[in-house]
Nucleic acid binder design. Structure first.
Length: 418
DNA sequence: TCTGGGGTCCTAGGACCC
DNA sequence: TCTGGGGTCCTAGGACCC
């Protein structure tokens, strides 16, 4: 008998940025709210309240489009430095219910309830699945009461199923399938073995990992739903769909969820904040740049920022990447690998070399980005690739920023043109 | 005035070594 | 001189996620 039991939970916060803005400014409650760039600026919608969704406003569309679709909405600029604190408070609530909590993004957490059945079982619960659903409603209520935020939860045997279920648990779900399914109720648990029946009718795009490109390939083959993909006769399974079909099969039918793709992430989770793979900053300009001195100046600002972030986390980058997007959206990246560094002058030196390889077209620049990857711990004293003067200067700068913030002290700029 | 910013993961090809 | 294969590292680009 297999141990296939729905005990993986995906909990996410409903319209997270909008909900936090409403906590900070209660006059926004019940009004149509769009968090993102200001109208007229270059930028996109980061979060849209349920009031504007029926008008076609979704995260990702341009602000220009959003203003056209919902001219009466309140446009709120994002406060990115504020949201993280709320997510941490939510996490603290979750950790009271299971030690196995993974932060997947700023508004999304995975919880593992394997082994918790006896703890949560109550006399009046019909079965252990029902007990878990009850506990998740308690968790939502606790988050609402203590942090002030609405949340939804999905449960399944695997992470992709849990994620799809949490989407179906959200408010305003269009009723689909049997009426006895708990769509929109705040918590959806997909029973073991019911995956295909409950989720098969969903459009392909709802499966995590199927994005615009994969969707197009599948639609071109005449497929529309997840069931269509699973029902493909063996002879029709082409190479281009084999991988994604395998992902769906594993998510729906995996007999060994404990050894599946979803488990290692929990085990690897580091309570001290996890490992970081890369640090990057990029910026789209209000108008495209063509003056090389301006480009250099912007790059210096980005280098300062990423290096500061790296030093704060005590990591040093072996690989530096420059990203450049032209006005026509053509984008190139150039990278180089060498001795580990997080020193502004050294990283900027490499970025200048990369710029020569990247900026080859005689065209203006829409976006610049600087990334650090291949991160390692502090270099040994003998291996220091930069001179002591630069290093002590950085330490002094970082101390000032520790007290007064990043913008309190900046590097001298390329002399502005008269 | 269509198309942000922060990430992760995968692939494919070339260099280089054994 | 030719023929291989495996492994690792690096680079560039693409897909995807929120």
């Amino acid at each position: 008998m297999s141990e296939r039991t729905p005990r993986i939970c995906c909990l996410d916060l409903d319209t997270f940025f909008v909900s936090v803005e409403r906590l900070l400014d209660p006059s926004l409650v019940d009004r149509p709210v769009i968090v993102g760039a200001r109208p007229g600026q270059r930028g996109v919608v980061l979060a849209a309240s349920y009031e504007v969704r029926p008008m076609g406003v979704r995260s990702g569309i341009s602000i220009i489009e959003a203003t056209r679709l919902a001219p009466d909405a309140v446009f709120v600029p994002p406060r990115m430095n504020t949201y993280g604190g709320y997510a941490q408070r939510v996490r603290a609530v979750l950790e009271r219910y299971t030690p196995c909590v993974q932060t997947a993004s700023i508004d999304e957490f995975y919880l593992d309830f394997h082994g918790c059945d006896t703890m949560y079982r109550r006399a009046h619960d019909p079965d252990d699945d029902a007990a878990l659903v009850r506990v998740l409603h308690e968790i939502r209520a606790a988050i609402r009461a203590e942090v002030g935020l609405p949340a939804s939860a999905g449960v399944g045997c695997t992470r992709p199923v849990a994620k799809m279920a949490s989407g179906l648990a959200k408010p305003n779900q269009i009723a689909a399938g049997d009426s006895d399914r708990p769509w929109g109720s705040g918590v959806v648990l997909v029973p073991a073995g019911a995956e295909r029946r409950w989720l098969g009718e969903l459009p392909l795009r709802r499966f995590p990992g199927i994005g615009p490109a994969a969707e197009k390939r599948l639609v071109d083959l005449g497929l529309a739903t997840i069931e269509d993909l699973l029902a493909l006769p063996p002879g029709r399974i082409l190479n281009q769909v084999r991988a994604v079909r395998g992902n769906v099969e594993r998510a729906f039918e995996s007999e060994t969820p404990d050894l599946g793709r979803d488990r290692p992430a929990f085990q690897e989770y580091d309570p001290l904040g996890g490992t970081i793979g890369s640090i990057s900053n990029e910026s789209t300009f209000s108008s495209d740049l063509s003056d090389p001195r301006q480009v250099e100046q912007r790059l210096l600002g980005l280098v300062e920022r990423v290096c500061w972030r790296a030093r704060k986390r005590c990591v040093f980058a072996r690989t530096v990447t420059l990203k450049l997007r032209y006005g026509d959206f053509h984008t190139v990246e150039r990278s180089c690998t060498g001795a580990a560094s997080a020193e502004d002058t050294e990283v900027m030196r490499r970025v200048r070399l990369l710029l020569r390889r990247a900026w080859t077209r005689r065209a203006s620049v829409r976006l610049l980005g600087v990334g650090l990857s291949n991160l390692v711990g502090p270099p040994r004293q003998l291996e220091l690739p930069y001179d002591e003067c630069q290093r002590s200067a950085s330490i002094a700068v970082d101390q000032v920023r520790e007290r007064f913030g990043f913008a309190a002290i900046r590097r001298g700029r390329v002399e502005p043109r008269r």
